[in-house]
Computed example of a mutant assay.
Amino acid sequence: MHCRSAFREERLDVLHGLMTAHPLATLITAGSNGLEANLMPFTLHAGGEHGILRAHLARGHSQLDALQGGAEALIVFQGPECYVTPAWYPSKAEHGKVVPTWNFAMVQARGKPVILDDATWVRAQIEELTNNHEGQRASPWKVADAPDDFIAAQLKALVGIEIPIRSIEGKWKVSQNRLPADRQGVIDGLRSEQVCPSMLATMEAR
């Protein structure tokens, strides 16, 4: 990943925080059919130096062959992002030498996938994924709410993926390369125009 030093994020807790908050990631593999990329929700677990990613997919999924091949996969987690207008920079009024840009935060993780053909494992992963998102609701839905035979049939059509993270990189491009006044101008612009509250929170936290 191309990343200037000003934008590099290396704190594992911060990287994991983005991955947990934005679990729908792009899984990228290279196999006999070439490069393939698909969106997939992941759960993050402790283990190894950088953590372990888990997910599930259909047995007939076109990416399964590449995952079974043992080649390293790339998983891209996209966090907050927003367009930045030059109108927010005080320096625009001073000299006009400004252009639009895009602020964003992202994490790239790499590791070799392991396929798990185990209905008990897959159910546990699905239950964790479900509970993570249903837990915020007043009346959370649970996997056990569905009929047992229905869930059993669904599980037969799925396999699990476990990816021990070999390497992990983070890029937080949140106007660190601008003068302090311009960076504050972006924060003020996001707040006053009430756009992209997640990016506003990200910038205010750094």
Rank of each mutant, 00 (worst) to 15 (best):
A138N: 01
L155T: 01
P113Y: 09
I165C: 01
W141K: 11
N131W: 03
E94T: 11
S192C: 03
W88S: 05
R137T: 14
E72K: 11
K97N: 13
R137E: 14
H133M: 06
Q78M: 13
I165H: 12
K97C: 06
P100R: 10
K112D: 05
S139Q: 13
V114K: 10
K173H: 13
L74Q: 10
L116T: 02
D188K: 11
G111W: 03
G170D: 02
E169S: 14
S167W: 05
S167I: 08
F104R: 10
E127H: 06
A93H: 11
H133L: 12
T120D: 15
T101M: 10
A109T: 11
G160H: 03
I151V: 15
E134I: 09
P140R: 10
E134R: 08
L129W: 08
D145V: 11
V114S: 09
A73T: 07
V159C: 02
I187T: 03
Y83F: 15
P100I: 11
A73C: 11
F104E: 09
L155C: 02
A87L: 12
G69V: 09
S91W: 11
I115W: 05
Q136T: 14
V99M: 12
W88A: 00
N103S: 09
K112C: 06
L116I: 05
Y89P: 11
R183Q: 14
Y89Q: 07
W121M: 13
W121Y: 13
G135R: 12
S167Q: 14
I163C: 02
G170Q: 02
E94C: 04
G170A: 07
S139D: 15
W172T: 00
F77V: 00
T101N: 01
V186I: 13
G111Q: 02
T130Q: 09
T101D: 03
P100F: 01
D188M: 03
N103R: 04
P100Y: 08
A73S: 06
A181G: 01
Y83N: 09
V143I: 15
A144N: 10
R191D: 13
W88V: 02
G170E: 09
W141L: 13
Q184G: 11
L155V: 01
V174M: 11
S175C: 12
F104P: 05
A138R: 12
G189H: 09
A73R: 05
A109F: 01
V186K: 06
D182N: 10
Q125M: 15
W88H: 08
A181L: 10
D148R: 15
A153M: 02
V143Y: 06
E134C: 06
Q176I: 01
A73N: 03
L190G: 03
I161F: 04
S167L: 04
A71E: 13
A93Y: 14
V84D: 13
A181H: 05
G79E: 12
K171N: 13
Q184C: 00
P180K: 10
V159A: 09
G96E: 03
D117R: 14
R178S: 14
I126E: 07
E134N: 04
F104A: 01
H133A: 01
D117M: 05
Q108L: 05
T120F: 00
D182P: 00
E169H: 13
G189V: 10
W141V: 01
A119E: 14
I75S: 00
